[in-house]
Amino acid sequence: MRLEFRFDIISDYFPLFMRGTLYTLGISLSGIILGSILGLIIGFGNMSKRWYLRWPMQGYIHLFRGTPLFLQILIVHFGVVVMVIGKTDAIVAAITALALNAAAYTAEIYRAGIQSIDRGQSEAAYSLGMTKSKVMRYVVLPQAIKRMIPAFGNEFIVLIKDSSLVAVIAAPELMYWAKSANAQYTRIWEPYLAAAAIYLVLTYSLHRLLIYLERKM
């Protein structure tokens, strides 16, 4: 087999790859933001003293961390989304599945971050007459969030990579276009290496940004 690298395939697909990259970013970003909000509720429920809040949240976390994301994407796409809006929508399904999945992981990030703050901090705040919500807001969370930032960054990086799985439901993100270039030209290296390079640029930039943020804080 002769080794040749057909740059024309990449340049043909360049605009689609770029658009796909934007979708990849958009889907991952929406996933991490919505997932973090949902994760906040789940995380706090999971830390509750009340069993009827804690148990369902623990169940949620186990369910989404204990089953493959691939499967979750299929169920959300062909099952949940169709049930709720009456038709399939790959982008809605992609964002929903990633957000639901990320929520389980961010819930654990919140818990770990909050529990890493020394109990003396909240005790001092309580002893000054603060309510539970004030203790959280002014004393625990500002310190905990600082410690959570690296973990959130990592979760975002994982999500960018895992968002490639939504190609299976034809959400038009980067991996989807890499696969379609592969199908059209029956070529392996050009589309997949190009996609790999783009993913690497995304995750590595984020990695650098995180290091910068950590230093600044």
Partner: peptide
């Protein structure tokens, strides 16, 4: 209340 470990808010 004053604690053995001070418990000032470091931030």
């Amino acid at each position: 209340m004053v604690f053995q470990q001070f418990n000032l808010f470091p931030h």
